[in-house]
Structures are given as C-alpha cells and as structure tokens.
Design a protein around this nucleic acid. Structure first.
Lengths: 162, 162
DNA sequence: CCCAGTTAGTTACAAGCGCAACTAATGTCA
DNA sequence: TGACATTAGTTGCGCTTGTAACTAACTGGG
C-alpha cells in the first residue's frame, strides 16, 4: 500500500504559493518602474510599453503593439491617444488597409525613448545585481515556461472558452 | 583601454526586460486564479487572499492580513466587509485595543476554504508540472531575492520617500 | 492627567481598467 | 456583385483600485 500524500491533504501556505508570489513580484516591478517613468517623465506603464515597442520596431499598428506587449486593445488605444496628444507619436493611415494606422515615434518621442532606455536598463541591472549568472539563466528559462503555460491557463483577452 | 560596453549603449528588448516579464507572468497568474475562484465561488483575488490567510492562521487583524498578503489596507477593508456580508468571516472587537478587530472564518468560511485549497494546489501543480525540481528550487530562490529587492525598489504603501 | 502624535480601520473621490457594443473597412464565397 | 463574416480601433459603462482625509482609540512625555 502506498503512503504517498494525496494533493488534497497538503496544506496551503500563501507566502509559498507560486501564483501569489509571482503576482507580488510583478506588482513590485510595475510599481517601481511606474515611479521611475511617472515622476521623471510623467507617463504610465501602458505609455511606456508603447514607446518601448516603437523604439525597438520603428513602426507598428496598434494591434501589433497590443500583441507584442500583452495589452488589451483598449489600453493600447488610450495609451496611443495620450502619446499622440503629447506629440510623442504620430499615426499614419495605412492606404492598403484603411482600418489600421501605423504608429511611430516623433522626434520628441525618440528623444524620450533615448532618455528612458538607460534608466530602464540601469534599473534592471540594480535589480539583478549580485545574482549568479547561471542561476539567472535558470531563472529566466523557468520563467519562460511558466509564462507560456500561464498564458494558456489564463486565456487570452476576448477569447471564447474553447 | 577597455572595450567593455557601457550600460547606456545597450539596446532594450521589452520581451526580455525582466520587470516586464515578471509583470506579465504575475498578470497571468492573477487572471487564471481569478477565473478559478470567480467562476466557481464568486469571489475575487483580494477575498481569496483574506480567506487563505485566515485559513492558515486562524485569527488575524486586518492590519496583519494586509501585511501578510501584501494588500493595501483599503483593499483589505473592502474584502473583509464583503466576506462579512456573505457570512464567511466574523469580526470580533479586541477588548484590549478597541481600534482593531480579530477577523476569523465562520463555519461556512472554513468549508469554503477546505474546498478551495485542493483546487489551488492542483492549479499550482499543473502550472509547474514537468519542471525539474532542482531548477524549480533555483527559480524560487532567485524569486525570493528579486521579491525582496523589488519591495524596496517599489517602496511600501503610504510610506514617505525617505 | 493631558495633549500631541500615532495607529486601526472606513470612506469619498478620481483615475484606470476590461467588457461589450459600436463604426468603418476589408475579406469571403456563392 | 452582393450579403455576411471578420478585423482594427474607439468609446460608454460599471467595477476596482489607491490616495487622501477622516473617525475613533491608544501611547507617551511632561
């Protein structure tokens, strides 16, 4: 006879419960970054993500931005509108498909991007400082697996339950 | 002369930017769990956290709950009120300090807790399934370091900038 | 004993969010 | 070609959230 413990008999300790821990660390990340961008540049996380993607890829539709940065289309829409209002991005209608528009950084947007990138990298550097490189590699590999699995467990935006 | 790259010269790739990745995985965790609790029990993440802490520790003040589960005191206040309204917790004034009250699960609350725990553990199990135990241990150790550092980088709630 | 400072918890308010519904444009298939 | 489905993007709405302000109770130094 097996004496192995059935899952339903194990106790739950929230502070060791992985989903909880991931949510907490993600919250800290968001909050800390929000302070950096917010206090120095007056932008929020969604705006920052839009700028980051445009800085990296040059020109994208809102749909692409949402997919690349895991944001709901309404959040993208509002972030792009805000950045447009501030003169940091432009929207150019795609003549081949007039439903969509190509969003790109203006000169001012590019200057802002150039300012933020070093801060973001320094922030990341300070955060992972002192962690052994090989441990960090393991961490990132596991994180990638958990993220991909989490995506399925969570279900994508506006997707019907299959 | 050194040829090492200065940080400000490195490029930023959002999808590899750690704060972003942590935020995304935390979002998936929260969303997936929210579905489990929400659809089956009609409660949200804050309510779940309160129940989890009470199930583990038996009796706590709202302040303790907030500290243990990393929630703002207003969020705790609202979650406890909601659970009280549903008859899942009771509030008993502490006679030695009448500002605070001891919150505890009712019998119904304990039954709910007993129902949720196996689901939560099974969810976690499904999420980490197939990941090598030693990699998981490394992951969790690094996660603990990042969380602690993130707590400081983010700053606690309603704390003045020191 | 008293008064200034601190703490537990609640609430008004505004900002941010996702869902659902909508408009406008494109794709599809007979 | 024409009717129906799909897609990009916006907006109205209700819900959740954190900040700030508040009440009530406790603490401690004089």
């Amino acid at each position: 006879m097996s004496t192995k413990q059935k899952p339903e008999d194990r106790a739950l300790h929230l502070e060791q419960f992985l989903p909880y821990r991931l949510n907490v660390v993600g919250f800290f990340a968001s909050r800390a970054l929000g302070r950096v961008y917010g206090t120095r540049f007056g932008i929020g996380i969604p705006e920052w993500r839009v700028i980051a993607q445009l800085g990296e890829f040059g020109q994208l539709t809102s749909r692409d931005i949402g997919e690349l940065s895991q944001m709901h289309k309404t959040k993208v829409s509002r972030a792009v509108s805000e950045l447009d209002k501030r003169g940091l991005v432009t929207r150019a209608e795609n003549r081949a498909d007039r439903r969509e528009a190509f969003v790109a950084l203006t000169a001012a947007g590019q200057r802002l991007y150039a300012q933020i990138v070093p801060l973001a990298l320094a922030f990341e550097e300070r955060w992972i400082e002192g962690i052994a490189p090989e441990e960090l590699r393991v961490f990132e590999r596991v994180l990638a697996v958990l993220t991909e699995r989490g995506r399925h467990l969570a279900g994508a935006y506006q997707t019907e339950e299959a």
